[in-house]
Simulated scan of single mutants.
Amino acid sequence: MKNLQYSKILKENWEIIALLTGLAIVIALIISLVQPFQYAASTKILIIQKQEQNLDAYTATKSAERIGKNLADIIFTSSFYNEVIESNSNITNRFPLDARERRKIWKKNIEANVIPESGILEIDVYDTDRNFATQLVRTISYVLVDKGSEYHGGGSGVEIKIVDDVLLSKYPMRPNIILNLVLALVIGLLFGSYAVILSESRKLNKVQNWMHDYDTEIYSPEYNLGNYEASLALQAKSIGFDINNQKENAKNSVRDTRIVTMHDHLR
């Protein structure tokens, strides 16, 4: 593929690239629109590692961050789910009875992340019902504050507080249509460019193979060089491949062969 002129190929085949890119965008849009639109309800919880005489502020912060990561993992366990259900029975009706399916939906609709270099745990809940998303995130934060000591093991040395009230999105956050369309645009451009370059590369290989198959013929003095050049040019048309060097080599090869033949005849 080193003989291909990539910019020329992309410019001459821009219609194909545009078609594939448009197709990718349409597919991404259809997939995004058929999915249920979900709102996001989020809150923040602060984990405080109480400082002792032999504990500096940095160590206390890192300890709180580690506890926050542990609590973020605990949220997705069956034990924590049961605590949430016991605290608010209305949540039970929104999740299936099958444990495997329930855990799958629970993990899909809930996100828990610790802000780096801090002891703040951010919790996001997604649902098609804005009120239910708000209710669920509040219940989760309540269970963490009320019964978090059963999970972090820090006892009275660790304090958990809700530092941010529930923030509910005005518009659906899932699916992210803009992000999906941008990704589709990038993927479409990359795939379209790769497809046209691969196609032209295969054409170039056919031309080179064709040239190789006829190498023995061009060394014959009786071979019509004009026909060879015309056929070769036809095969290489519309490909970013410069055959001038190949034509010159063919001429030199025929000329040298004829000189050697005449020399042998004179001898």
Rank of each mutant, 00 (worst) to 15 (best):
D146H: 05
K147R: 15
K147E: 08
S149I: 03
Y151E: 04
H152Y: 02
H152L: 01
G153A: 03
S156F: 14
G157I: 07
E159A: 02
I160E: 00
K161L: 13
K161Y: 14
V163C: 15
V163A: 08
V163H: 09
D164I: 12
D165M: 06
D165W: 13
L168P: 01
S169E: 13
P172C: 10
P172I: 09
M173W: 10
R174Q: 10
R174Y: 11
R174N: 10
P175F: 04
P175Q: 11
N176F: 10
N180G: 10
N180V: 15
L181H: 02
V182F: 08
L183M: 14
A184Q: 06
L185V: 14
I187H: 02
G188V: 10
L189K: 03
F191D: 09
G192R: 00
S193V: 05
S193F: 09
S193T: 07
S193K: 07
V196S: 01
E200M: 10
S201I: 03
K203A: 12
L204F: 00
K206R: 11
V207F: 02
V207N: 05
V207T: 04
V207R: 01
N209A: 13
W210T: 05
W210F: 11
W210K: 07
M211R: 07
Y214F: 10
Y214V: 07
T216N: 05
T216E: 06
I218A: 01
P221D: 13
E222Y: 01
N224R: 12
L225V: 02
N227E: 08
N227V: 03
E229V: 06
L234Y: 07
Q235K: 13
D242R: 08
D242I: 15
I243K: 12
E248A: 07
N249W: 10
K251W: 08
V254K: 08
R255N: 09
R258F: 06
R258I: 15
I259K: 14
